[in-house]
C-alpha cells in the first residue's frame, strides 16, 4: 500500500506541497487532481523518490522511502508523463535493463506478452529515436509494469497514446488494481479519473481540498449533488468562480 503522512515540499520560500496525507490500500486507485501548479507532479515525484520531502513521510509497500529507499522503490513503478529513455538501448534492451535492476528472473517469458499487449512486438529491435511519441510512452509503461509493481504511480499516463492505446491502458490500470496493486493516478482527463479511481484527492496550492470516495466528497458538499465530476472539480478548486457559475463549496 501507499501511505503518505504530512508530506511537505518546500523550494526556498515556496511551499509546493503543504502537509498532505492520504492512504491507498491494495486494489484502490487514488485520483490526484488539481489545477496546473497545484503540486500534483511534486507530490508524485516525492512518492517516486525522485525528490526528497522537506517534511513528512512516504511508505511504499510498508517501507519508508526515506530510510528504506531501495526496498520501497523495489515495490514501485513510476510512469511519468514525459517518457525517459536511453537513446542507445533498443525496446527489448530497455526491458532487459529493468529486469536486471528489479531482478525479474523470467524476463524472457515476460517480454513477448508485454510488448504484444502494448503493440510494440514489431519494434523489439528499435531504438527510441525510431519510435513515435506514443510508442515511447508505451515503452515507458512496459518498463514500469514488467516487474509487477505492488505500487503504481502514474502521471498523465495517457499522454501521447492513440485511442486504442488509451483504452488498453485504462484496462491495464484497472486489471492491476484488481490484482491488488495500489495505484495513484494524476490526470486532467476527468473521465479517466471518474472511470478508474475509487477515491479522489483534490489538491490546490499544495493543500488538500477534498479527499475520499466521490460519494463522500459530494456528501460533504451537498450543493454539488447531481453535478458532473468536471463541475465538482471546478467548484472544489475554485476555478469555476465567475466562469460557469458553479458555486464554491461551503
Amino acid at each position: 500500500m501507499i501511505s503518505v503522512q504530512s508530506l511537505t515540499k518546500r523550494y526556498g520560500d515556496l511551499t509546493a506541497v503543504d502537509g498532505i496525507s492520504f492512504d491507498v490500500a491494495p486494489g484502490e486507485v487514488l485520483g490526484l487532481v488539481g489545477p496546473n501548479g497545484a503540486g500534483k507532479t511534486t507530490t508524485l515525484r516525492c512518492l517516486a523518490g525522485i525528490i526528497r520531502p522537506s517534511a513528512g513521510s512516504v511508505l511504499l509497500g510498508g517501507h519508508d522511502l526515506e530510510h528504506q529507499a531501495v526496498e520501497a522503490k523495489r515495490t514501485l513503478a513510476f510512469i511519468p508523463d514525459e517518457p525517459q529513455l536511453f537513446d542507445y538501448l533498443t525496446v527489448e534492451e530497455h526491458l532487459r535493463f529493468i529486469a536486471r535492476v528489479y531482478g525479474v528472473a523470467d524476463v524472457d517469458q515476460r517480454i513477448g506478452p508485454v510488448l504484444e499487449e502494448l503493440e510494440l512486438g514489431d519494434k523489439r529491435k528499435s531504438l527510441p529515436d525510431e519510435l513515435s511519441r506514443g510508442m515511447k510512452q508505451k515503452l515507458a509503461i512496459a518498463c514500469g509494469l514488467l516487474h509487477d509493481p505492488r505500487t503504481l504511480v502514474l502521471d498523465e499516463p495517457l499522454t501521447g497514446l492513440d485511442p486504442g492505446g488509451m483504452r488498453r491502458m485504462r484496462a491495464t490500470i484497472a486489471a492491476r488494481a484488481r490484482a491488488g496493486t495500489a495505484v495513484v493516478l494524476s490526470s486532467h482527463l476527468l473521465t479517466l479519473v471518474e472511470e478508474l479511481c475509487t477515491k479522489l484527492f483534490v489538491i490546490r496550492r499544495g493543500r488538500c481540498v477534498a479527499y475520499g470516495p466521490l460519494s463522500q466528497i459530494v456528501e460533504a458538499h451537498p450543493e454539488l449533488a447531481g453535478r458532473s465530476l468536471e463541475d465538482i472539480f471546478l467548484a472544489l478548486t475554485g476555478e469555476g468562480e465567475g466562469g460557469n457559475g458553479v458555486p464554491r463549496p461551503a
Partner: peptide
C-alpha cells in the same frame, strides 16, 4: 547509433547484481 548498430549488443543475464545493469547499459 543507427538501426543497423543494434546488432552490436552485449548479453545481459536477468539476475545478478542489479547495478551491473548500469555498467552493461
Amino acid at each position: 547509433p543507427r538501426a543497423k548498430d543494434v546488432r552490436r549488443s552485449i548479453p545481459l543475464a536477468a539476475t545478478g547484481l542489479p547495478a551491473y545493469a548500469i555498467l552493461w547499459k
